[in-house]
C-alpha cells in the first residue's frame, strides 16, 4: 500500500475511540505514529503521513464538537417520560433482594395510586392527550372509513361507540370531510375526523385538518369552553376547547392564521 492508501484508511479513523484497537487501522497507525522501533524491526513511521494524520485528528475532533453542540430542547426528557405512562420496564431479571425492594415499592405505589385516583377520578392529563393526538395525525395512519359524507362518518363512529354527539365549528363545516378513525385514549373512545381545507396540501398528504373528540371526563385539566387554547404541537397548530361535555382538539397543518379560520 502507498501513502494515499494509508490516508484513505486513516480518513475513517476516529481519535479517542475503539478504532485504536481495530485491526483494520493497525498498519496505517504504525505509519502515522512515531514509536520506538522494536529491536530487529525497522520503524515504519512516515513523517509526512504523520503530519497529515495529526491535522486529520484535529479537524475530526473539531467537526465532532459541532455535532455535540446541537442543542437539545429543554424539557424533552420530561416530555418523553410523560408520553409513556406505562410503568418502568426491567430488561433483565431481578436479584432476590431486588424483588423484595420492588414488592415494597409496588405496595407503596399502589397506595399512592389509589389516593391519586380517588382525588383525580382516573383522568389523564390534557397536554399528554393533545400531544398524542397530534402525533397520531403526523404518523402514518389509515382511516377506518373514507367518506365525504358526514352522516356516514357518524354512523360508522356510532358503531364503534366513538363520540358522535359533537358540534362542528362553522369553519370546519366548510371543509370537505375525508373520513374518520375510531381511536382509544386510556381505554376511552376518541373520534378522529379528517378534513381537507381546499388549500394546497403538503407533498404526499391528503389531509390538512383533523378534529379529535373525546368525552370531557376522559381528559384531566382539559381546556375551558371558550376561547379555544391555541398551541403548536410539533408540526401542527392546535386549538382546543370544551363544549357540551366533549373535549375538542382541532389540528391543522398550517400556521395559526390558517387554523383560526376554522373555529
Amino acid at each position: 500500500m502507498n501513502k494515499e492508501d494509508f490516508r484513505k484508511i486513516l480518513a475513517l479513523y476516529r481519535p479517542g475511540t475503539a478504532d485504536r484497537a481495530d485491526p483494520g487501522f493497525k498498519e496505517a497507525l504504525e505509519r502515522a505514529n512515531p514509536s520506538p522501533a522494536p529491536s530487529g524491526r525497522q520503524d515504519k513511521f512516515d513523517r509526512e503521513l504523520g503530519r497529515w494524520f495529526q491535522e486529520h485528528c484535529s479537524s475530526h475532533l473539531s467537526i465532532r464538537s459541532k455535532f455535540l453542540q446541537i442543542p437539545v430542547p429543554p424539557g424533552l426528557k420530561d416530555q418523553i417520560l410523560a408520553e409513556v405512562r406505562t410503568p418502568a420496564r426491567n430488561v433483565i431479571p431481578f436479584r432476590p433482594m431486588d424483588l423484595l425492594r420492588a414488592a415494597a415499592i409496588l405496595v407503596l405505589c399502589l397506595g399512592l395510586a389509589a389516593l391519586f385516583w380517588r382525588t383525580h377520578g382516573g383522568k389523564d392529563d390534557f397536554n399528554t392527550y393533545r400531544g398524542r393526538m397530534a402525533r397520531t395525525a403526523m404518523q402514518p395512519y389509515v382511516m377506518d372509513l373514507q367518506s365525504h359524507d358526514l352522516p356516514s362518518i357518524n354512523a360508522f363512529l356510532a358503531g364503534r361507540k366513538a363520540p358522535t354527539d359533537y358540534v362542528l365549528p362553522a369553519g370546519v363545516l366548510k371543509a370537505q370531510p375525508l373520513g374518520c378513525a375510531a381511536l382509544k385514549w386510556q381505554g376511552q373512545p376518541v373520534s378522529m375526523i379528517c378534513f381537507r381545507s381546499g388549500q394546497p396540501l403538503p407533498a404526499g398528504g391528503q389531509t390538512d385538518l383533523w378534529l379529535f373528540i373525546v368525552d370531557q371526563s376522559s381528559v384531566r385539566n382539559g381546556p375551558s369552553a371558550r376561547p379555544p387554547i391555541v398551541a403548536r404541537v410539533s408540526k401542527l397548530m392546535t386549538a382546543a376547547w370544551t363544549q357540551g361535555g366533549k373535549t375538542y382538539v382541532l389540528a391543522a397543518a398550517g400556521d395559526e392564521e390558517f387554523l383560526r379560520k376554522y373555529f
Partner: peptide, 22 residues
C-alpha cells in the same frame, strides 16, 4: 446484573438519540 428502568434508559440516551435524529 443490574436492572434497567425506562427512566434510566431515557436519561442515558435521549440526548445522543436526539442529536442523531436532528
Amino acid at each position: 446484573m443490574e436492572s434497567v428502568s425506562f427512566e434510566s434508559v431515557v436519561e442515558q440516551y435521549y440526548e445522543p438519540l436526539y442529536r442523531f435524529a436532528f
